[in-house]
Design a protein around this nucleic acid. Structure first.
Length: 294
DNA sequence: CGCTTCCTGACT
DNA sequence: AGTCAGGAAGCG
């Protein structure tokens, strides 16, 4: 579920409650979320007694820095939530409570996940135990030094993948997901099924700017809450009100009035305005007959 | 590179 | 009953 703006919002709302506090106890209800270590007791033992020194984010990964140099890494995937709770768990979500740690002040932090797709790792100070995905992450989408139009142009050059597929690849740029990719492509007037290598430099520049703008908008509006997403204090985001194509199939384009279309690109549900986002040139299936004139 | 899998729930 | 869902890893 959560993409960069949602994970960043969770980070900001969780940090004040957990940084500087010691974890006194922990409980795991579903070991399927544990990736390293995979054993419940071993996992609990590695966090109990630790003080959280900071909460960082890389792409969609949350990184809780522990005082022994290790890192508790959480990826929320599709339906995961991270919630700070000063009270007993909300009865509506208690059936989805998978992991809970108690802090020294009596509050708790819950990992809630209906679909059980979220993953938890303990990473050693030297990086041992980090998942491939974290190690091979591309530059942060909002890092103006690393993620530049020039970088994006190089990443796209000669690539036959669709531009949407390229942007969803976390090795290329870290933090984008299905919603913000569709929004960035709409704002830059680029059709998601265009081949990445076919984009002109002016389009790459527009796209780069649109990516930054839409992510900043997302953070400013505390993320998109279609159903389950909430920040660490249980509040929904209101970026949904500012989406221009995602979730608006069948409605009128806010720019030109044409009906927003739902299709499938890069294996994902995709929303676009067929008038504002010009379709890719059809690939020529037949080689044209060679010249007949002398 | 695209397709499948990991899960559960909501919707058609 | 079948399809789809905001993610990513693993397969061929």
């Amino acid at each position: 579920m959560p993409e960069l703006p949602e994970v960043e919002t969770i980070r900001r709302t969780l940090a004040p409650h957990i940084v500087g506090r010691q974890i006194e106890a922990g409980r795991v209800w579903d070991a399927r979320l544990l990736r390293r270590p995979t054993d419940c007791d071993a996992f609990v033992a590695s966090v109990v007694g630790r003080t959280v020194q900071g909460v960082d984010r890389r792409g969609k990964y949350l990184l809780l820095r522990l005082d022994d140099g290790r890192t508790w890494m959480i990826h929320l995937r599709m339906s995961g939530r991270l919630a700070w709770a000063a009270l007993p768990p909300d009865p509506r979500v208690v059936r989805f409570l998978r992991v809970r740690v108690w802090l020294e002040d009596g509050s708790a932090v819950d990992v809630i996940d209906m679909r059980r797709l979220a993953t938890l790792f303990i990473i050693e100070p030297d990086g041992t135990g980090a998942p491939e995905g974290l190690r091979r992450l591309g530059p942060e989408a909002l890092d103006a030094e690393a993620f530049t139009p020039r970088y994006l142009a190089r990443a796209a050059r000669d690539r036959s993948v669709t531009i949407k597929g390229l942007l969803l690849d976390q090795r290329v740029v870290a933090g984008l997901g299905n919603i913000y990719v569709d929004e960035a492509l709409f704002r830059s007037r680029i059709h998601p099924a265009r081949r990445a290598g076919d984009l002109r430099i002016a389009e790459i520049r527009r796209l780069h700017e649109a990516i930054r703008a839409v992510l900043q908008d997302g953070i400013e509006h505390l993320g998109v809450s279609f159903s389950l997403y909430r920040d660490a204090e249980g509040r929904p985001g209101f970026m949904s009100d500012y989406l221009r194509v995602y979730g608006r199939a069948g409605e009128a384009c806010l720019t030109c009035g044409h009906t927003i279309e739902a299709t499938r690109v890069a294996g994902r549900g995709t929303a676009l305005c067929p008038r504002c986002q010009r379709a890719p040139r059809r690939r020529r299936l037949v080689v044209p007959v060679q010249g007949v004139h002398a």
